[in-house]
Design a protein around this nucleic acid. Structure first.
Lengths: 157, 157
DNA sequence: ACTGAAACTTCTGACGT
DNA sequence: ACGTCAGAAGTTTCAGT
């Protein structure tokens, strides 16, 4: 799918504010609302726009703690990694999880209500798994940036 | 702001699909559409819903590389940390940045087109800063989970 | 390819329960 | 507090250039 500069502008506007109406989009992009509507629909159909999400304020919802957890497994291959992956998917306080190069096998982003509930996750669940060999927790002290907005500046024409 | 189970259901539905209409919401929550509209507006006004974002497919946009970068600064206090923080805010390939406890000072999430453009970010920009003492890059090999959806299960009544 | 207007869907405020 | 209804706003399809 070829993306021109109008698509790029539409994507950039929507990743910053997904609630923009086609009429509002049309002002920023200098296109008619109907054209924005069609291009937007095409970008959604192509999967370039995966979907829309409401961003919630974790602090106001009482989720005061954010932790970056690095995990090493004792064994690898076979079903070891996929077992761990499936288990991670079922843990509600794990927002994202990656397997990485470097000294850790996995990096998890965890949100919890307070130290007690994080401790519950860590000691009563993660560390009870027999396939875990090492866990290192880095508590987030300050959030400098949390946008998730992709850099679209050097994209298509 | 007190949140009852209806608010909780609305928030949970919207953080998974922010494009839901109030009519669609009303089906899942068993409330009228107008009531959903009112509650949703209240949650937005209270800042519990910070906003809406379109989630884009980074792969389809040619951003093939994701790296978790851990950074240590040479000096602290004064303006050292806030200088770094402001600089981070201006780097488009840095999606999120946290100051953390543990052996690293900062953890960054970086997206880049390819190894070459990541190398450009690393060597031509980050490592040229005189306040950097150590940088360790962990490349993301596999994404197990990437939802950012908060756990709302043990919230209000 | 884009625009403009018509048909349709969704939103939202007033009112009644 | 919630639901119903009607007017307002936004979206989307279609014809035209």
């Amino acid at each position: 799918m070829p993306l021109d500069r109008y698509d790029r502008q539409i994507l950039d506007a929507l990743q910053r504010d997904g609630a923009l109406t086609n009429a509002q989009l049309s002002e920023r992009v200098n296109l008619s609302a109907s054209q924005c509507s069609r291009r937007r629909a095409a970008l959604e159909a192509a999967g370039v726009i995966e979907g829309y999400r409401a961003k919630l304020d974790a602090g106001k919802l009482g989720l005061g703690i954010r932790v970056i957890v690095r995990v090493n497994l004792r064994t690898h291959g076979n079903s070891a990694d996929s077992d761990f992956s499936a288990w991670i998917g079922r843990q509600p306080e794990v927002l994202s999880a990656f397997s990485v190069s470097g000294d850790a096998d996995y990096v998890l982003h965890v949100r919890a209500r307070d130290l007690e509930s994080f401790s519950d996750f860590l000691h009563e669940r993660l560390l009870l798994r027999p396939d875990i060999s090492q866990v290192r927790s880095d508590f987030v002290l300050q959030t400098l940036k949390d946008s998730d907005a992709l850099d679209l500046s050097d994209l298509g024409r």
